[in-house]
């Protein structure tokens, strides 16, 4: 009885397998469909940069807190960037930011510019944003960087003999 049922089930299963093997592939192959969100490349708006959840969260926080001084256009229109001296780097400025380590960016965002020997106009966000939120912001900056950001190779463990 049990075997008999198993055979019927197998037949149905194979039938299903055969009848449903069309369509759907196009949906799977579109790279945009694999991203949680996208952000247009600031230097080339036609090109969409895929973002994962963490980077998308960073994007949301960026447009709430940072865009006013770290972009040339803002949701409200004009940017505050030109009012500042020294002029802060754009969030996608790979030439300025790719050389900075994640730790440095985390520190300057948490503690503010004056704590890191930079402009005091950069305020500290460590008591407003969580560490995870600041890490998300850094992940977003890395994702949109032009030229593209290359993460450093994982460091070899140091041997005491050297």
């Amino acid at each position: 009885m049990k075997k008999h049922f198993a055979f019927v089930a197998l037949a149905l299963y194979l039938g299903m397998n055969f009848s449903a093997s069309r369509g759907g592939a196009a949906v799977q192959d579109d790279p945009r469909q694999k991203a949680y969100a996208t952000e247009p490349d600031w230097n080339d708006p036609q090109r969409l940069i895929p973002l994962n959840y963490q980077q998308a969260r960073g994007k949301r926080l960026f447009y709430q807190y940072c865009v006013w001084c770290h972009a040339d256009s803002t949701p409200a229109g004009p940017s505050n960037r030109a009012n500042l001296n020294p002029v802060p780097p754009l969030m996608n400025d790979g030439a300025a930011l790719n050389g900075k380590s994640n730790e440095f960016l985390l520190d300057i965002t948490t503690l503010g510019g004056s704590a890191m020997g930079k402009s005091a106009m950069m305020p500290p966000y460590g008591r407003t944003l969580t560490r995870e939120e600041i890490q998300a912001l850094i992940a977003y900056a890395r994702a949109i960087a032009q030229p593209a950001y290359q993460p450093p190779a994982p460091r070899e463990p140091e041997h005491s003999g050297r």
Partner: peptide, 19 residues
């Protein structure tokens, strides 16, 4: 597990619609 046509009631959701 992955192809929508094999899982008609619960196809894998492309990440762009995962929200």
């Amino acid at each position: 597990a992955h192809q929508p046509e094999l899982a008609p009631a619960q196809p894998l959701l492309p990440t762009s619609y995962i929200q």
